[in-house]
C-alpha cells in the first residue's frame, strides 16, 4: 500500500515535470537564422538580420540560433537542419539562397520562412521587399536641397530592380525639389557594373565630382567604400550619401546621411507577427511607414543641415506615407512622374 502511494506520487511528479517541460518548450518560439557564405560579422545583411533577431530575443523572449554557411552547397542542408532542429521560423539571408529556399520551403509547410529582398512562391515564406524608391525619394530631395553647386551624382552598383528603384526614387526626389524651390539641380548617373569594385567606384565618383557634383549617392555594395574615399579625398564641400545601413560612422563628416533599409526592423516585425499569430506568407512591402526605411540620424553632419530642410523632409515623408505622392518604380514610370508643386497636400 505504501509502495503504491509512493509510486503514484512519483508518477504525478513525473507527469507534472513532463507537462511543465512541454509547456516551456511550446512557450518559446524558436528562430533559426541561416547566413549566406559571408557569415556573421559582414557589417551588412547578416549582421542586420541578426540584430533584429537579438532584439526579438530580448523583447519577445524567443529562442534564437544561427547556422553559418561555409559554401553554397551548404544552403539546402543548413535550411533542412534548421527545420530538423525544431525551428518555428527560419530566416534565410543572401540572394543566392533563393533557389535553395524555393526547394526546401514547400516541403515543410508547418515551418515559416523569412527571406530578405526576394519572394518565393510558397505560402509559408514571407519575402521582405523594400520600397527603395521611397527612401531614394527622400535622399534625392535632401541632396537637391543641400547641393551648393546645383549638380549631384549617383554611382550605382549593378542595374538590378532594387537599385533601379533607388535611382528613380532619387531622381523623383530631385524633380520634386526642383519644382518646389524653383531650382534646376542636375544629376550625373553612373553604374560601376559590379558591387565590389572599390577602385572603379572611386574613380567614377571623382569624375562626377570633377564635373561639379558635390553630393554623390553611393548605390550599394562595397563600392560605397570607394565613393566615401573619393568624397574624403575631395575634402570640404564634397559629400557622399551612404546606403542600406547607417554608414555615417565609416568616414565621419564626409557622409551626409545614409539611406537605411532597416532589415532588423523588418525581421523583428515578422517575428512579432508570428507570435501574434498574424504571420502571412507572400510579399511584404516595407516602406517609410513603420520606419522600415529611414534616413540616418546624421550624428556627424546634423550641424550642416538648415532647419527648414528637416521640415520639408518630414512633410515629404508624410505625403509618401499617406499616398499623396505616387512614386515611380522604374525608368518608364519616372517619365510620367508628376512632381508636386506645393507642400500643401
Amino acid at each position: 500500500m505504501k509502495l503504491r502511494n509512493i509510486f503514484i506520487f512519483g508518477l504525478v511528479v513525473i507527469l507534472i515535470l513532463v507537462f511543465a517541460g512541454i509547456g516551456l518548450a511550446i512557450d518559446k518560439v524558436k528562430v533559426i537564422m541561416v547566413t549566406d557564405t559571408a557569415g556573421l560579422g559582414d557589417k551588412s545583411f547578416n549582421d542586420s538580420v541578426w540584430a533584429g533577431i537579438e532584439k526579438a530575443k530580448k523583447d519577445l523572449g524567443i529562442e534564437a540560433k544561427v547556422i553559418e554557411s561555409r559554401e553554397m552547397a551548404d544552403y539546402v542542408p543548413n535550411l533542412t537542419g534548421a527545420i530538423k532542429d525544431g525551428a518555428n521560423i527560419v530566416i534565410g539571408v543572401g540572394y543566392l539562397m533563393i533557389d535553395a529556399l524555393a526547394e526546401v520551403a514547400p516541403k515543410y509547410p508547418d515551418t515559416k520562412f523569412i527571406f530578405i529582398d526576394a519572394a518565393v512562391d510558397s505560402p509559408n515564406v514571407a519575402g521582405c521587399i523594400f520600397n527603395e524608391q521611397e527612401i531614394g525619394f527622400l535622399s534625392g530631395a535632401f541632396m537637391g536641397m543641400m547641393t551648393k553647386t546645383g549638380t549631384v551624382g549617383w554611382v550605382g552598383g549593378m542595374f538590378i530592380p532594387p537599385v533601379e528603384r533607388f535611382e528613380v526614387g532619387v531622381r523623383a526626389g530631385l524633380l520634386t525639389v526642383n519644382a518646389l524651390c524653383n531650382t534646376d539641380v542636375e544629376i550625373k548617373i553612373g553604374y560601376v557594373g559590379s558591387f565590389e569594385d572599390v577602385p572603379k567606384a572611386k574613380s567614377m565618383t571623382l569624375t562626377q565630382m570633377g564635373q561639379g557634383a558635390d553630393i554623390v549617392f553611393a548605390g550599394g555594395g562595397t563600392n560605397t567604400l570607394g565613393i566615401f574615399e573619393a568624397a574624403k579625398e575631395k575634402g570640404e564641400g564634397f559629400y557622399a550619401i551612404g546606403v542600406d545601413q547607417d554608414q555615417d560612422y565609416i568616414q565621419p563628416g564626409s557622409i551626409l546621411t545614409s539611406a537605411m533599409k532597416r532589415v532588423d526592423v523588418a525581421v523583428y516585425k515578422l517575428i512579432e507577427d508570428y507570435i501574434k499569430e498574424e504571420f502571412k506568407g507572400g510579399i511584404h512591402s516595407m516602406g517609410l511607414e513603420g520606419d522600415f526605411l529611414s534616413l540616418s540620424p546624421m550624428n556627424y553632419t546634423k550641424h550642416l543641415v538648415p532647419y527648414h530642410v528637416f521640415g520639408v523632409l518630414e512633410a515629404l515623408r508624410e505625403a509618401v506615407v499617406k499616398g499623396k505622392i505616387k512614386l515611380p518604380t522604374s525608368q518608364d514610370e519616372l517619365k510620367e512622374f508628376k512632381a508636386p508643386v506645393s507642400l500643401v497636400f
Partner: peptide, 13 residues
C-alpha cells in the same frame, strides 16, 4: 560534421 556540430553547440565552423 562541423555544420552539424555548429547547429547543436553553436561553435563556429
Amino acid at each position: 560534421g562541423a555544420m552539424y556540430m555548429q547547429r547543436i553547440m553553436q561553435v563556429s565552423t
